[in-house]
Each structure stands twice: as C-alpha cells, then as structure tokens.
Design a protein around this nucleic acid. Structure first.
Length: 204
DNA sequence: AGGAAGATCCGCT
DNA sequence: GCGGATCTTCCTG
C-alpha cells in the first residue's frame, strides 16, 4: 500500500485520456463506505477520447443525461449502467467541455478482500475479485450513487500509489468496441504486463 | 411506438 | 463458444 493517503489532485487528471490512462496504472483506488473500506491497485484501463472517438459515449458530441458528467471538470467519477445489469467506473479527463474519460477495467485488491468477496457474492480468487469493469464496481460497492463523485476528496478517491514504469506497460486495442470502425483498432487499452488480475487477452 | 444493440459476466455445452 | 439477464439510447416508421 502506498505511503501517501492524499488523493491525487485535480491537476493530475487535466490531460488527454490516453496520457491519463497510462498515468493511472499502479495508483490506488479506494472506496470507504459504512460497510468498510476496499482498496485496490489499478492494473488495466482504457482511454475514451471524446467526440472524435467512435467508441466513446460522447462520440459526435452527443450529450445525454447518462453521459453528462463527461463534460464536467476532470477528476470526477463517470459511472454508467450497461447490459441491463452492470455498472462501469470511469475517471473524467481533460478540461471542462472536452468529454474524455478513462475506464477502469481491473485492479488487484490491497485491503478489504473479505468485504469485496461478500459483495461479489461468490467464491473468487484474490486476483479475480476486481477483474473486469463490472466486477471491479461490484467489489468496490460502486453504483449510481457514485456517478459524479469527486475523486480528489470524499469516500471514493485515488491515491498516488506507485507509478508503473513505461517498460512494464502493455497496450492493445480496447475490448468490446468492434462497432467503432477504425477506432476499434487504436491501442488505447493499457495494462500492467505481469499482473495476474488483468482481464481478457494479454496482447501488446 | 417499437426494436436493436451495447465500454459485461456467468453458467452451461 | 453461446445465450440470458433486461437499462439506456438511438434509429426507424
């Protein structure tokens, strides 16, 4: 666990989604609730680059109640519901008016494994507890109530943790965006090469 | 108004 | 590998 309990400041998030995505690897995601605290090391993320990115919810500048948070200031949580069952967590990037975000796809549990396992409601290995964007949210207790939450202060925050050196980072196309044409080929998924918690294929 | 598809996961085959 | 779960948004008529 990182020595610093200070959340990363807003300025950390105020850059384009691809650079933010790489910078978020190795950081510590923490959610404190009445039930307890779950903390985890971020090991897999995807960048969604805004109006020009066909895979992004904000593609074409389409602003809806669902994706409204993407247009706001960086460092806030964009939480959305998919497939009628699952929640996914993003960090808003860039400056207000630039609807970019980074999706959290997997993390390694550091603290609160018992609580995370209870939330998952099944027997899962440590490395599987927060593997996959929906499982990550479930283990952390993240849902509609966290949409718009400020990641720089409050119950859901990201701490400095330990930055991952570039030589340990792998890139690949993003998962599940085949409909996005050429943008589906862009290498905007990033993961920690030797982490057992990374989901899906380990290309790169 | 109605239908299709989606930044998914799980259990079965 | 396939289908079911079933919310939100978009597109068609």
């Amino acid at each position: 666990m990182s020595a610093s309990r200070e959340p990363l400041p807003r300025a950390f998030y105020e850059r384009d989604a691809v650079r933010l995505a790489r910078a978020l690897l190795g950081r510590t995601l923490v959610h404190e609730t009445r039930e307890g605290t779950v903390a985890a090391r971020i090991v897999e993320v995807e960048a969604y680059r805004g109006p020009a990115d066909r895979a992004a919810h904000s593609y074409g500048g389409r602003r809806t109640p669902r994706n409204e948070v993407m247009w706001g200031p960086a460092g806030h949580a964009y939480v959305y519901f998919v497939y009628g069952m699952h929640w996914c967590l993003n960090a808003v990037a860039a400056k207000p008016g630039a609807p970019e975000a980074v999706l959290f796809r997997a993390a390694e549990p550091l603290e609160g494994k018992d609580l995370a396992r209870r939330r998952r409601g099944r027997d899962v290995s440590d490395e599987g507890l927060l593997r996959g964007p929906a499982n990550l949210c479930r283990a952390l207790g993240v849902g509609r109530a966290q949409n718009g939450a400020d990641l720089t202060s409050g119950g859901l925050v990201i701490l400095a943790g330990d930055e991952v050196p570039p030589r340990c980072i792998r890139a690949s196309p993003r998962i599940g965006v085949d409909y996005a044409g050429d943008d589906a080929l862009m290498p905007w998924r990033f993961f920690v090469a030797d982490s057992p918690a990374v989901s899906g294929r380990r290309r790169g």
